[in-house]
Amino acid sequence: MKCTKCGGKAVISVLQHHLGLCKEHYLEWVPGQVARAIQKYRMFAKTDRILAAVSGGKDSLSLWDILHRLGYQVDGLYICLGIDGGVNYSNESQRLSQQFAAQHGLTLHVVDIPQVYGESIPQIASRTFRGRGAPCSVCGLAKRHEMNRLARDLGYDVLVTGHNLDDEAAVLFSNTLRWAGGFLARQGPVLEADQPGLARKAKPLCRMYERDMTAYALLRGIEYIYDECPYALGATSIYYKELLNKLESDQPGAKLNFYLSFLQAKEGGLFAPQADPDRAQMHPCPSCGQSTTAEGLCSFCRMMGGES
């Protein structure tokens, strides 16, 4: 396969865009695509202070790399979850995040959950039995809360995450299977800070395939944590991604089309605000100030025994 841009030897095919690209042009193409998404969905401007949530994985470190190369003011946030799982998972992902920051002269904020709250994520899951003892729902809740808290406390204009198109398509698929109106109404490249205590959030990689981000990290020489989170084994989201990849294999571009058609339909009014009644009833948590649909304390503060 030849590079569509220069005719040299391609190192990657991007079938959903009918492209083959050499290393040099691929490393130009990916940031270009991300820049277009940032502009199209009005995510943020060069004058904004951006906080990138990084996990040590390929997507978030690549996102940090790309935003920095594009000239944005972007610092990192690493949340240590206290997960070992026999592979030293949290320590290794923190090391790789810190290594990336040091190599690029970037600022990384670290929040250590066991140090701040006295318990690791698996310990909180065991104590509360939330998610029937599996730590994934506790992990998601704690990460969302802490990302939001730090973005607000440190005065950032926007929080960005490394969610790629496969992540978004898998969530969309899951929500569509259940016709979860509220979640469908809320899903999108930008979540506005339109409720008390909420930071503005954006997903600049939302149109990039997971495979494309892996290729970017490899070609750019970004060292990332390759081991899967030990608790992610058998996760439904991974199953949905595999299903969607089967579809993509038969119909290149199917995943992209699924997600972009959804965004178009949403813009056209398919998901009315009434589909998300929870959002209309949000109020600030009396303990941490973040928005919640629950009466009284938010889910995170209840989980932590009253205060965050």
Binding site: I12, D59, A235, K241
Partner: peptide, 25 residues
């Protein structure tokens, strides 16, 4: 150590390493 495309022909003795791309949970 180099990325190759799906149309590349494989020669005797080639060793391919596959990098899995799916992550999440």
């Amino acid at each position: 150590g180099e990325l190759i495309t799906e149309d590349e022909l494989l020669a005797p003795g080639d060793v391919l390493k596959l990098v899995m791309v799916i992550s999440g949970g």
